[in-house]
Nucleic acid binder design. Structure first.
Lengths: 196, 196
DNA sequence: ATAATTCTTGAATCAATGTTCAAATATTGT
DNA sequence: ACAATATTTGAACATTGATTCAAGAATTAT
């Protein structure tokens, strides 16, 4: 017995992600979000409460839809080595997907609010830990299957690969040279084979 | 035949670096800079012209004084392998020095204004290219001396190590676990030994 | 049709932003 | 001492920021 919402919150958040990605949290003005979503301030505040809440929603939505996290989700059953390689392949080649290299909201948020906003920092840390855990699991399984060298511990390798991905996210801010990223990914993945 | 400046511009910029590091460019308010430097707005604008110019000065100063760039400076003569290892060691262990892991203004600026502000982006890109070039030179010399495997090209290895450093800068925003970073650095540096 | 409820709209609000400027102050040459 | 020049100061300014809210519009139940 009341008026309905005229927009889909998820769509609004999806559009907001693009704004936060290119301008950052502080850099994104509410007016930018209004322009992109075509939803006026009153409605935005009615639905989301605050700019910060919209940012949090954007972060949460991002981890749900980013290819990297989707792929990692079935770390328990997917073919280990192949899946790890796919993680890097998608990152570099599938630039229209969410989370493609240089378009990671998590990396951007980490740089911007990491250590400043306690709550978001803690949440980001959890996200990283979860990714690392899944990556670790994948490596464990890969080692058991003999697809990955057991010279280094799964945890070490997982943390190393996670770092590599973050580094690529930084550099891709101005580099769009896929060949370069392919070479880097190859060098990083080679760590999975070292016996010494 | 006029009044003298009562502050040292370089000192002011050094203090500004800390503010820009923790709050970012947009996040840092002039009033924050006034508080930290104890120089009032009029004087700041008289000396530097604008907030953006202060940020640029901070960036330029940062590359001059950061240990990473200082160490890289004599890539032409320093012992190659040892120097590369020192780069990572300083990054992780010498946390009071400029550019210590998690305190790199270049990484932060890259994430924030990379792709947005054309001029700063171009400048940042040059900085990265120069670092990569010096790192590359170090690797070339290391290969010639037999200290580094020649399986991969110097350029590939340099780009890979550069990425690793950037990744560490991101993660260190909330991690302060040196043991973890040591393991990561070790895994990354192992790439210099792979023969296959 | 009316009441009840919820959403939309956009002007208004208030705090904070980067920047400017006139007045006061300090220094140097004459 | 005085003129000339340059710097400091902080209040003032214009702009932009996030947020609020009263009025209007849409939907449903009765």
């Amino acid at each position: 017995m009341a008026r309905h919402r005229e927009f889909e919150p998820t769509e609004v958040i999806d559009k907001s992600i693009d704004v936060f990605l290119s301008k950052g949290y502080e850099g994104a003005a509410i007016r930018d979000l209004i322009k992109v979503t075509n939803v006026k301030s009153g409605s935005l505040y009615n639905s989301f409460g605050s700019k910060k809440q919209m940012f949090k929603n954007a972060l949460e939505r991002f981890v749900e839809v980013s290819q990297f996290n989707i792929t990692l989700a079935d770390a328990e059953t997917a073919p280990p080595r192949e899946t790890i390689e796919k993680l890097f392949f998608d990152l570099i080649e599938v630039t229209d997907k969410r989370g493609a290299v240089g378009k990671c909201l998590i990396s951007r948020a980490t740089m911007e609010v990491g250590g400043v906003d306690k709550e978001i920092t803690a949440w980001l840390q959890e996200v990283f830990e979860k990714s690392e855990r899944l990556l670790c699991r994948l490596i464990e399984r890969g080692q058991a299957a003999g697809e990955i060298s057991s010279f280094r511990s799964p945890k070490e390798l997982a943390q190393f690969l996670a770092i590599t991905v973050q580094g690529m996210q930084v550099m891709a801010r101005f580099e769009r040279d896929n060949k370069k990223f392919r070479a880097i990914a190859e060098t990083a993945l080679a760590a999975l084979d070292y016996e010494k």
